[in-house]
């Protein structure tokens, strides 16, 4: 897995964007529940927006929603699918965000952090989320975890593992995707080491979720 870098993950999604988008139509209930309980903000952020499945959810609470992804083809799919006047598409890297400090009031960072190729990148990315969240800003972070049924892993281990999970296109060709599957303890450790303030962490449907704030 040493040769996997952030560009590889982006290129993977460029290749599968069209088919991937067709299979990712609905928002996650965990995201809807989180956002529904939040106060209105000026700017929302969907970090790793993919085809924009959570943009409309965020738009219920945010005047403008920055939809950021590394893959241009996924951003193109978001533009085709989502007709929301507040949506602002940005191509960028989750570990080096092109967004100003304190510019975001409400963020969802769902099923993306686990694609970053090293622990260093993943921790940088959490610090970047802390930087862009304003003083009262709040966010929801999710990753795939070792607690998921499909992994034969010890969910009580200190760390998770790197793996490759194939995406099969309609023509039968297979595109590998890099994942770091988090042990819940590791997810908590990375959050604790970051500039984020953690309000709660839980495991649901094989994913780890954390509600976070910027450190005051």
């Amino acid at each position: 897995m040493d040769d996997t870098d952030a560009r590889d993950v982006r290129e993977t999604y460029e290749e599968i964007a069209d088919h991937f988008s067709k299979t990712r139509a609905y928002p996650w209930p965990e995201v809807e529940t989180f956002v529904e309980e939040e106060d209105p903000v000026a700017v929302g952020l969907d970090l790793g927006c993919g085809n924009g499945r959570h943009v409309a959810v965020l738009a219920e609470r945010a005047d403008r929603v920055v939809a950021l992804d590394a893959s241009r083809n996924l951003l193109g799919a978001a533009r085709d699918r989502i007709d929301d006047p507040g949506m602002r598409l940005v191509q960028g890297d989750a570990a080096r965000l092109p967004l100003r400090a304190d510019s975001v009031g409400l963020a969802v960072y769902v099923a993306t952090l686990h694609h970053l190729p090293s622990r260093e990148h993943r921790r940088e990315s959490l610090d970047e989320l802390a930087r862009v969240l304003g003083a009262d800003g709040r966010g929801l972070v999710s990753v795939w975890s070792t607690a998921h049924d499909r992994f034969d892993a010890d969910p009580d281990a200190e760390t998770g593992f790197d793996t490759t999970i194939d995406w099969t296109l309609p023509d039968g060709s297979v595109v590998p995707r890099f994942y770091h599957i988090y042990a819940p303890a590791e997810f908590e450790a990375d959050l604790e080491a970051s500039q984020l303030q953690v309000e709660s962490v839980r495991v649901s449907s094989g994913n780890c979720y954390a509600e976070v704030q910027s450190q005051a």
Partner: peptide, 12 residues
């Protein structure tokens, strides 16, 4: 390009 700013770091 095509209405979307590409703010990826140059190495990506």
């Amino acid at each position: 390009e095509d209405g979307i700013p590409n703010l990826l770091p140059p190495d990506m």
